[in-house]
């Protein structure tokens, strides 16, 4: 299975955020989508999730040589600011999700098994989610997206605002669950991308560029990425910051930008 993007374009006012993007993402891999703030990462995700209309181009799945449209049920989208229905308890949300997807979830398990899997404690499972912490909400959002087993999983900076323990748990989950799907993980923290992802893709000046992943841990490799992204200075996408953030993403991303340090690019 492959996700084919062909000549995808999106602009806001006169600013071209995505320029004629063509790229192939392959099954079973986690792609680290690196880009500077405002480079268009969220816009790309919003286009793939059909939250905003494209100005040009197309994207589709190619399965065993056959072209298939990407349906809503094929996509999982995890946002940096977790959004869960706060009037439900964790268990009620899971029950609802399992019931309405009955028949389409392979090998369904009892709710508690899922909670054990994601690491939500027994005493928290029957609490209203409005009282959940940021990390717990994030876990619920991730859980629901993982149970659905979407063919394409989009993760928009989902780990940067979590504490180190939850972030590590999430990374392990993503690694363990990458088979049979395409996972695209957007971040502006380079070390995180290098640690988790199989492939690194740069979104720079509205275009996607795959980076040769040999010697990914070397300083030289980091310098190479930084150099590529520096070139984008002055060519950022103000239109995106104003009008095309992912739903619920803006505040979270800004907080992360302020909090993140180290290899923050």
């Amino acid at each position: 299975m492959q996700l084919e993007i062909r000549h995808l374009a999106k602009k806001f006012d006169k600013k071209e955020v995505l320029r004629d993007i063509s790229f192939t993402f392959e099954e079973g891999k986690i792609y680290g989508l690196l880009g500077r703030n405002g480079a268009g990462k969220t816009t790309l995700f919003n286009c793939l999730n059909r939250d905003i209309l494209l100005d040009g181009g197309e994207f589709y799945l190619e399965i065993a040589g056959k072209r298939e449209e990407l349906g809503a049920e094929d996509i999982g989208y995890v946002l940096s600011t977790p959004t869960v229905p706060e009037f439900l308890t964790g268990r009620e949300f899971l029950k609802f999700f399992l019931e309405i997807n009955e028949g389409s979830i392979p090998d369904p398990k009892p709710a508690d098994a899922y909670f054990d899997f994601i690491g939500i404690e027994a005493e928290d499972r029957d609490r209203l989610m409005k009282d959940y912490s940021h990390g717990m909400k994030n876990k619920m959002q991730m859980l629901v997206n993982m149970i659905a087993q979407p063919k394409l999983l989009l993760l928009d900076e989902p780990l940067t605002s979590l504490d180190v323990v939850v972030a590590e748990e999430m990374k392990q989950l993503l690694r363990a669950d990458k088979k049979g799907r395409i996972t695209i993980f957007s971040t502006h923290i380079m070390d995180l991308a290098l640690d988790l992802c199989d492939e690194i893709v740069l979104l720079s000046r509205g275009e996607l560029e795959k980076v040769d992943k040999e010697n990914m841990d070397s300083q030289e490799f980091k310098e190479k990425i930084l150099e590529a992204l520096r070139e984008e200075q002055g060519a950022q996408a103000p239109g995106e910051r104003q009008g095309a953030q992912a739903p619920g993403e803006r505040q979270g991303a800004q907080a992360q930008e302020e909090e993140a340090d180290g290899s923050h690019i």
């Binding site: 996509i75 946002l79 959004t83 629901v144 739903p247």
Partner: peptide, 17 residues
């Protein structure tokens, strides 16, 4: 209290649902 969060889930946006 509901759709603001639920509309970020793809399954919720299926036409039938």
């Amino acid at each position: 209290n509901c759709d603001r969060s639920m509309l970020t889930y793809s399954f919720y946006k299926r036409p039938g649902f």
